Amino acid sequence: MTKSFTIDQLQAAVYGDPNEMGEAAADFVKSKLNGAIQQKGEANLILATGASQFSFLKALQRKAIDWKKITVFHLDEYKGISDQHPASFRKYLKERILDSVAPKKIYFLNGDAPDLEKEMDNYSKALQQHPIDVACIGIGENGHIAFNDPPVADFNDPKWVKLVSLDEDCRNQQLGEGWFPTLDDVPKQALTLTIPAIMGCKTISCVVPDERKAEAVYNTLNEEISTKCPATVLRTHPNTSLFLDTNSASKIAD
């Protein structure tokens, strides 16, 4: 680790490379999950997806965690794609961690459900019935958390899960990460946990590597807390840790 610092209530640390960052985040999440299991016999976890989570998820599945006592949710899913689509977040999580660790229970958000309103309502109820001990999230290039892009982000959203339209910056990010062959192939809508659903979690672990996230990281730490950069709201959470690498932290002044 090269440095750590606190802005408002947000604790941040910068690591030398994505692997070192991923290991540190995985140790942090392991500690929180094991603490919850020790306290109440079980734990509830939210996982994020995307290229930014590769090193973290690889490290997390190697940690000594009793997955048979953990219930897992995830942040979001594209509208209208199946869990066999190469860009499906359900497919991503199965292949990158869930099939390996075999948690007690997995709640998947199905973007291709025949009744999306019912799907979102059921997912909201499941979240409310399983208070989340640790939410593992990232920050998008446009400053979003989950799919709460600036145009649709609401710090006081009455919903826990909602259908949103994705802005151009978000859709271009998905294209740039290689999940879709063309911009036209990137879905225009997605189901997402809302900001209150995320902020209601006991602990938030936010993993953000790569130079393409540097401006979003700078804005998260320095801009006024507002939906212009939704991730700024993380500075108001009492137990959030932000894990950066030297590239994503490159615009932060020493």
Rank of each mutant, 00 (worst) to 15 (best):
D133G: 10
D27R: 15
P230T: 04
N247M: 11
D66S: 10
T236A: 13
H74N: 13
P150C: 15
S82P: 03
D112G: 06
R171S: 01
R96K: 10
F56Q: 07
L93W: 07
F108C: 11
E23Y: 06
A190C: 03
S100F: 13
T203S: 07
S4K: 14
G41I: 07
S124N: 04
S52C: 02
D8P: 11
A126M: 12
D27T: 14
Q129H: 11
T182R: 15
G140T: 00
A113V: 03
K68F: 00
A64I: 10
A197H: 07
D83V: 05
L45V: 02
V72Q: 03
I132P: 05
K69Y: 04
A59E: 09
P230F: 07
R235Q: 13
L57R: 00
F108S: 12
A253C: 06
L109H: 06
T240N: 14
L183N: 01
G143L: 11
L109D: 11
R235L: 08
Q61W: 01
Q173D: 08
I106H: 00
T194Q: 00
L244G: 05
I106V: 09
T71D: 09
V164D: 02
K58D: 05
A153I: 13
R171Y: 02
I132Q: 04
M1H: 08
A126S: 14
K32S: 02
Q189E: 07
S241H: 15
N148S: 14
K30C: 11
G176V: 02
L163A: 15
V233I: 15
N247I: 02
L244F: 11
P187V: 00
T71A: 07
K68V: 04
K251L: 14
V233S: 06
P209R: 01
P114T: 10
K3N: 01
P86S: 06
C229D: 04
P238V: 08
N247L: 11
D169H: 09
K40S: 07
M199T: 09
